[in-house]
């Protein structure tokens, strides 16, 4: 079967530094792929390339067999690649509900000239959107927080909201950058359940994460980056025993955050 996402020799330089270096990676439909590696390995940069936030220096990215190299962020998003950021990136001043509603932009059909008429079709569309937003919020377990402002949420829930907004775009591929970082064990458990449910709903997920326990339990497959290069790829058990991976983690003098 054709991979959902495929990068070939994907490379990104920052000045002289190759943050991502000739990375070949394939993501199959409806799997959870873990992308791990020490600090500064290039994981976030890889996401930025795939989602169109940084221009690619060399190499190609294909999504559903279509070359998306060089596309802008909003175009990539429109093709069905959603993402949640490493640091909670939300509409802090808005309620949880409105945050998710904004995520629905891509699927909200409403001609401008009709907005003021408040006609039946506009009302129906809005009702449909609200219903859908509510469903997503329930699905992600944020029902009790729907009316709270995003900035007043606890950290863990902010991270869940970030995923929730991305889910509202109804992506085919979801990129999660360190969804478990800074979470209590209970929050981690909630997030694990959420990601599992997302996968069960048919969405393909790529997770960047330092929490090895979570990665090992969630992911079908793991790819390891070190200094911009992919050094290993395989099922979790294999990766955990891979001497090169262990070396990369021990060799880096940085602590896990």
């Amino acid at each position: 079967m054709k991979p959902l996402l495929e990068t070939r020799k994907l490379t990104r330089f920052f000045g002289g530094l190759a943050a991502v270096n000739e990375v070949d990676l394939q993501v199959a439909e409806s799997e959870i792929l873990g992308l791990i590696g020490p600090n500064g390995a290039g994981k976030s940069t890889f996401f930025n390339l795939v989602s169109g936030f940084h221009p690619v220096t060399r190499g190609t990215i294909a999504f559903q067999g279509r070359d998306i190299t060089g596309m802008k962020a909003h175009e990539v998003a429109n093709l069905g690649i959603g993402r949640a950021f490493q640091a909670a990136t939300l509409f802090m001043q808005l309620s949880v509900f409105d945050n998710v509603f904004n995520g629905f932009h891509r699927h909200y059909r409403e001609p401008v000239w009709k907005a003021f008429l408040h006609s039946a079709s506009v009302r129906r569309e809005e009702q449909r959107a609200r219903q859908k937003v509510k469903e997503i919020i329930d699905f992600m377990g944020l029902t009790d927080y729907a009316d709270r402002k995003a900035q007043n949420l606890p950290h863990g829930h902010q991270k869940i909201l970030g995923v929730c907004i991305a889910m509202a775009t109804q992506p085919k591929l979801l990129l999660l950058d360190e969804p478990f970082t800074g979470m209590h064990p209970e929050e981690t458990a909630v997030m694990m359940k959420v990601v599992g449910k997302i996968r069960d709903s048919g969405v393909t997920v790529v997770i960047v994460e330092h929490n090895m326990d979570a990665v090992m339990r969630l992911c079908d497959r793991i790819a390891v980056l070190n200094q911009g290069r992919k050094i290993a790829e395989g099922p979790p058990g294999e990766i955990a025993r891979n001497p090169e991976v262990i070396e990369a983690y021990l060799g880096s003098d940085e602590e896990e955050p």
């Binding site: 909003h74 993402r83 904004n102 995520g103």
Partner: peptide
């Protein structure tokens, strides 16, 4: 007023509140 309350106005304020996030929601 019509614009502000429509999808367009919502996209505008999404850009104002967080441009980077708005982009990932496919706002041009």
């Amino acid at each position: 007023y019509a614009l502000y309350t429509s999808r367009v106005g919502r996209a505008w304020s999404a850009i104002r509140l967080n441009a980077r996030l708005a982009e990932t929601l496919s706002v041009d």
